[in-house]
Simulated scan of single mutants.
Amino acid sequence: MLERTRELEEIQEKLVQKERLAAMGEMAAGLAHEIRNPLSVIRNSIYFLQTVLSGKEKIKVEKHLKIIDQEIDETASIIEELLNFTREVKPELSWTKIDDLIKESLKSLPIPRKIRLAKKLGKDVPRIRLDKVQMRQALKNLITNAVQAMPQGGDLKIGVKVNKRHLVISVSDTGEGISEKNLEKVFQPLFTTRARGIGLGLAITKRLIEANQGEIEVESREGEGATFYLKLPLPSEQIQRGKSN
């Protein structure tokens, strides 16, 4: 009886959450439209100024125009993050080679020179079925999060290992770490300790991983960096042990 009650409560909670996300999605779509239009006008104005200014005038304002352009990119990124969070996650599964997925994720991210990158991808890692686009986004979010945690530079380590139940991808940094009181909050929507951003990156990452039947965990001590573990299930019917193409 208790188990049935818990199941009903979980179903009810999921329905409420789905309704909230749908409402947020409508609001986010409207906001995105209203904000993107003036951003486009500002960007066009920047382009116009860059074409008409010359000589000393251009040198004086060029730096400030670049700052404005960067802020537009930052605002557009926040809008996209909000839209991604409110979209329904429906994975399209295909057999995937994990080391290729990691390489593709890194290829599209600029890693600063002051960050030392180390990869340990393991041997005989089986292919598993997942949504490549979603998991690539989840990995990019974790890598970006690690880089942002090390503004003065540090070590970024990405590892892959297989145990009896999971394929585990780890992303580690040597940044400021996460305090004990914040460890339970890092995956909550709108939670952030940083001056910039709206705190949806890790919440989106968690949703993407769970949509692919995976789990995410974090280990950290304040001042000692953090390690995020992305765990993907390895049921026998999902494992394809053939050699990579």
Rank of each mutant, 00 (worst) to 15 (best):
K140W: 01
K140P: 00
N141F: 12
N141L: 13
L142T: 11
N145P: 08
V147L: 13
Q148G: 05
Q148K: 14
A149S: 13
A149Q: 10
M150L: 02
M150H: 01
Q152A: 08
G153R: 01
G154Q: 02
G154A: 06
D155P: 00
K157A: 10
G159S: 15
K161P: 01
K161H: 14
V162L: 10
K164D: 15
R165F: 12
L167F: 06
V171C: 08
V171M: 06
S172V: 10
E176H: 07
G177Y: 05
S179K: 11
E180G: 00
N182S: 12
L183E: 00
E184I: 07
F187P: 01
F187Q: 05
Q188D: 03
P189H: 07
F191D: 03
F191K: 01
T192N: 07
T193M: 04
R194V: 00
A195L: 09
R196S: 12
G197N: 06
G199S: 04
G199F: 03
A203R: 01
I204T: 15
T205N: 12
K206L: 14
K206W: 08
K206R: 15
L208R: 10
L208S: 10
A211V: 09
A211K: 10
Q213R: 14
Q213N: 14
G214S: 06
G214T: 04
I216H: 10
I216C: 07
E219I: 12
E219T: 12
E219K: 12
E219W: 02
E222S: 07
E222Y: 06
E222L: 12
G223K: 05
E224N: 10
G225F: 05
A226E: 01
T227P: 05
T227R: 14
F228K: 12
F228N: 11
K231V: 06
L232A: 04
L234M: 15
L234Y: 10
P235M: 14
P235F: 14
P235W: 14
